[in-house]
């Protein structure tokens, strides 16, 4: 029982480490996709956020400022994607692919210049996003250790779960949410009702970049304590997968990310103890995702106007 509590605590701890970056990005992806703009540039926006957050924290010593700036950097690339696709009607897949090249390309190039040819940027503990409730629990008891594992975690982790509720509220309970969902379904109808489709979509893609940037910053400023060119390897695509998994709903994306994070946590515990090949264990999150899809999720309904450029005729 004791060891179960311990291991379960560690799994949850790891879940809460792996989930937040994905979840920030997935919430971002929801905004873009639901408003009708395919955004496969999440990965590039995350890299931009990861780098900028780290650099700002490194120079200012303020993790909070760094975190916000990470979001802003993601938003900047979001704005590029938005301008190309929403204003100019560019192909969304192509533009997203370009963002995935430009994001890492530009930031790593800047990193080389700023840090004299090394592209690893380390953070000291007080430049990292702080953990909450550290030392609150009595780790000498089994229960206390469990609580410490689960609840003494980064502020960014608490924030992301709050964000899920906020995004859900925005989507389903506010005027902006109703309109952005309408824009993803039938932009012409929105235009006839006097809703500015271009502005709505532009805003959504920017928000998507901002949240992705936060997700990226979360990786380098919470999970690890440094920026490296391979800090973001595929998390952006996993976030997109989580959104497809969650049928384009923030609450669904939460489930997708938690499933993925939990499997990654499982991986950590099993990898240490079971003796099964580490590479096979690493496969678990991906295999489980496919199995869950087949068994429980099935077909998802894509917003009707998703991926289709909307242009006003003059």
């Amino acid at each position: 029982m004791t060891s179960f509590m311990n291991e379960f605590g560690i799994i949850l701890y790891a879940t809460l480490i792996y989930t937040p970056p994905l979840l920030y990005a997935a919430l971002g992806s929801c905004f873009s996709e639901v408003s009708g703009v395919v955004n496969i540039g999440i990965e590039g926006m995350m890299t931009a956020g990861a780098f900028t957050g780290t650099v700002v924290a490194y120079f200012t010593g303020s993790p909070y400022l760094g975190f916000i700036c990470g979001g802003m950097a993601g938003m900047l690339f979001g704005a590029i994607h938005a301008f190309a696709t929403v204003n100019l009607g560019a192909d969304q897949t192509i533009s997203g692919t370009a963002i995935n090249m430009l994001g890492p390309g530009i930031v790593i190039m800047i990193a080389r210049v700023l840090f004299n040819s090394t592209d690893t940027i380390p953070l000291t503990p007080d430049q990292k996003i702080p953990t909450l409730f550290k030392g609150v629990f009595d780790t000498s008891t089994v229960f206390g250790r469990f609580m410490d594992n689960v609840f003494a975690t980064y502020a960014s982790t608490y924030l992301v779960f709050v964000m899920v509720i906020v995004v859900w509220f925005v989507f389903y309970k506010t005027r902006f949410g109703l309109r952005l969902r309408a824009c993803g379904e039938h932009p012409q109808a929105c235009e006839t009702l006097g809703i500015n489709v271009i502005a709505t979509r532009f805003a959504c893609v920017c928000i998507s970049g901002f949240l992705s940037g936060l997700g990226g910053a979360c990786v380098t400023m919470a999970t690890s304590n440094q920026f490296r060119p391979i800090s973001i390897v595929g998390q952006g695509f996993i976030a997109i997968a989580a959104v497809l998994f969650g049928k384009f709903r923030p609450q669904g994306a939460l489930l997708g990310c938690l499933l993925f994070g939990f499997c990654s946590g499982l991986k950590v515990v099993l990898g240490g103890s079971s003796g099964v090949n580490v590479h096979l264990i690493s496969m678990i999150p991906y295999v489980v995702t496919v199995i869950v899809l087949v068994l429980f999720v099935g077909k998802s309904r894509v917003p009707a106007a998703n991926g289709k450029p909307y242009l006003k005729s003059k």
């Binding site: 090249m101 430009l102 994001g103 390309g105 790593i108």
Partner: peptide
């Protein structure tokens, strides 16, 4: 990384 910027 200049290459990525150019290609992007």
């Amino acid at each position: 990384q200049l290459i990525n910027v150019i290609v992007g």
